[in-house]
């Protein structure tokens, strides 16, 4: 049977994102760990860029918080990619309307909810960093993300009921 191009592309993209996410989380973790032995160098760079008035302890702590949020984001993202890959595999196998996929969708919903909460934490860190007068990108709350969380939970419920209805219809003549 010829493989569906969309599914083939989705599988490849999801695998790539899964690996990139792990790499990014590992880099954040390494940077966080190195921020202690290399604190002197980091402080020197910050002083060189922002001058002596900067509260170095607060600035370094804020950077560490940012890295921690990055690691937590990677941990939250992982189940999204892994569960989506499993769902795509069931579509390829020709039997996606199963209770397991409803559970996977619900897991994705929880992961998205965790990401949204982390986004709020990220916003707090960004605000903190901007108060320290450090260069930082702006942050706006993601309304679309919250809608996606609700949508995924509703879809998971629809999927679960659909899978049960299909089970009821199985072996119906």
């Amino acid at each position: 049977m010829r493989r569906d191009r969309v599914l083939w592309g989705a599988t490849g993209l999801l695998r790539l994102m899964l690996v990139l996410n792990i790499v990014c989380a590992a880099v954040f973790a390494l940077a966080l760990l190195l921020s202690w032995p290399m604190q002197g160098m980091l402080s020197a760079r910050l002083t060189h860029k922002y001058g002596g008035t900067l509260d170095l302890d607060q600035a370094v702590l804020a950077i560490r918080m940012m890295l921690f949020v990055g690691i937590a984001g990677g941990v939250a993202l992982h189940p999204i990619f892994s569960n989506l890959l499993r769902i795509v595999a069931t579509v390829e196998a020709g039997d996606p309307f199963v209770d397991d996929n409803a559970t996977r969708l619900a897991r994705i919903g929880w992961a998205l909810l965790a990401l949204q909460c982390l986004d709020l934490a990220f916003g707090g860190v960004v605000r903190w960093i901007s108060l320290l007068k450090l260069d930082v990108t702006g942050w706006t709350p993601s309304l679309g993300g919250w809608i996606a969380v609700v949508m995924i939970f509703v879809l998971a419920r629809v999927f679960r009921i659909g899978a049960r209805m299909r089970d009821d219809l199985a072996m119906t003549v």
Partner: peptide, 10 residues
């Protein structure tokens, strides 16, 4: 399936 009694519903 119906004849062998394996059907769940008709």
């Amino acid at each position: 399936i119906l004849k062998t009694g394996k059907a769940k519903a008709i």
